[in-house]
Amino acid sequence: MADTTVRHGESGGATRRDVLDVVTWSAVAIGAGTIVWPLISSMNPSADVLALSSTEVDVSQVPEGSGITVMWRGKPTFVRHRTPAEIEEARAVQLSALKDPQADEERVKAGKEAFLIVGGNCTHLGCVPLGNKSTDDRGDFGGWFCPCHGSHYDTSGRIRLGPAPTNLPVPEYEFISDTVARIG
């Protein structure tokens, strides 16, 4: 009997059919991926959302000892004018005592140590912590206190106590003049 096809296992190697199978299914997988990708990608932030990515703040309007909340990318962002005592307090902490160790110097701009700019959503589940007004409950460490699940932040916005895993994030920003900071 004239056998024109090579069967699996006879020569121990892959047959022409195996190669065709792999090629076909690879093409199907790539094709499916190409179709699905735009669907998934369309759900990421669109150009108009990304365009709203910077905000300017006049920090001279913030009284010493308190903070204000500005909107940046649809989210609250805290701008806090710290007192010398608060800066002192933030710098006196041993890094080893911190849950998410970071020095205060790395969280502010040199020469502008009085101004702390941090994201205003608790890193636990996104509530807005209290503490901008000096009359607010600022928690045990004088910074912010999140009323939702009880996270305490210090005067550098670092997590000190409670369920939040990380410090309040410092956004990208620069001082474009002596008193105006551009966030984003």
Binding site: M43, N44, P45, S46, V49, R73, G74, K75
Partner: peptide, 17 residues
């Protein structure tokens, strides 16, 4: 989370989806 929101916060794109 950014993908779920369609932005950097819960906002209109989130409501729509």
């Amino acid at each position: 989370v950014t993908w779920l929101w369609g932005g950097f916060a819960v906002d209109n794109p989130t409501l729509n989806r």
